[in-house]
Amino acid sequence: MTLIFMALVAVLVATVFQWRLLPSAGRRRLPAMLKRLAFMMILGLMVMGIWHALFTDWISWQVFISHASTFGLVTHIVSLWWTTENESAKS
């Protein structure tokens, strides 16, 4: 537990440090990006839940959460990449 709390403190310190380095335009965009990430994580839960319900035997919740979060994170990154590509193509 001590190591977990030490890691949590290290992540919080790094988060505050990165927040302070972020320019004001980035700070304004961050809430929308976090909402988008949360939506993609929920989408990952739904997609992987349906996938595992239809195509696999029941697996452990740890594997399910791992698959769902991976799907959500990859979907988030690809959606950001596509929107960046569309914005650069328009200009």
Rank of each mutant, 00 (worst) to 15 (best):
T2D: 10
T2H: 04
T2G: 05
L3G: 15
L3Q: 15
L3T: 15
L3A: 15
I4R: 11
F5M: 09
M6L: 14
M6K: 12
M6R: 13
M6D: 13
A7R: 09
L8M: 14
L8Y: 03
V9T: 09
V9R: 07
V9K: 01
V11D: 02
V11W: 06
L12V: 07
V13P: 00
V13W: 04
A14T: 03
A14N: 02
T15E: 07
T15D: 09
T15R: 07
V16A: 10
V16E: 00
V16F: 04
V16S: 01
V16K: 02
V16W: 04
F17D: 03
F17L: 11
F17V: 12
Q18S: 14
Q18E: 15
Q18F: 08
W19M: 05
W19Q: 09
R20I: 06
R20F: 06
R20T: 07
L21A: 13
L21W: 03
L22N: 03
L22P: 01
P23T: 05
S24F: 11
S24P: 07
A25H: 04
A25M: 10
G26A: 03
R27C: 09
R27L: 08
R28T: 11
R29A: 14
R29L: 09
P31T: 05
P31G: 08
P31R: 04
A32T: 05
L34W: 05
L34G: 04
K35L: 15
K35A: 13
R36C: 08
A38V: 05
A38Y: 03
A38R: 10
A38M: 05
A38Q: 07
F39A: 10
M40A: 11
M41A: 14
M41D: 06
M41C: 06
M41Q: 10
M41F: 05
L43C: 06
G44P: 00
G44Y: 00
G44H: 00
L45K: 02
M46G: 13
M46R: 06
M46C: 15
V47E: 01
G49N: 04
G49F: 02
G49H: 01
G49C: 03
I50F: 14
I50L: 15
W51S: 08
H52E: 09
H52P: 00
A53T: 12
A53M: 08
L54N: 02
L54H: 06
F55V: 11
F55I: 05
T56L: 12
T56A: 05
I59T: 02
Q62L: 14
Q62T: 07
Q62P: 00
V63W: 09
F64M: 11
F64R: 06
F64K: 05
F64N: 01
S66E: 00
A68Q: 00
A68S: 11
S69G: 07
T70K: 03
F71K: 00
F71C: 06
L73V: 03
V74M: 02
V74W: 02
V74G: 01
T75C: 10
T75D: 06
T75R: 01
I77W: 07
L80N: 07
L80F: 04
W81R: 04
W81F: 12
W81G: 05
W82D: 05
T83F: 09
T83Q: 14
T83I: 08
T84Q: 12
T84K: 11
T84N: 10
T84R: 15
T84V: 04
T84C: 08
E85C: 10
E87R: 09
E87F: 03
S88H: 06
A89G: 06
A89I: 13
K90I: 12
K90V: 12
K90A: 15
K90F: 13
K90N: 10
S91A: 13
S91D: 14
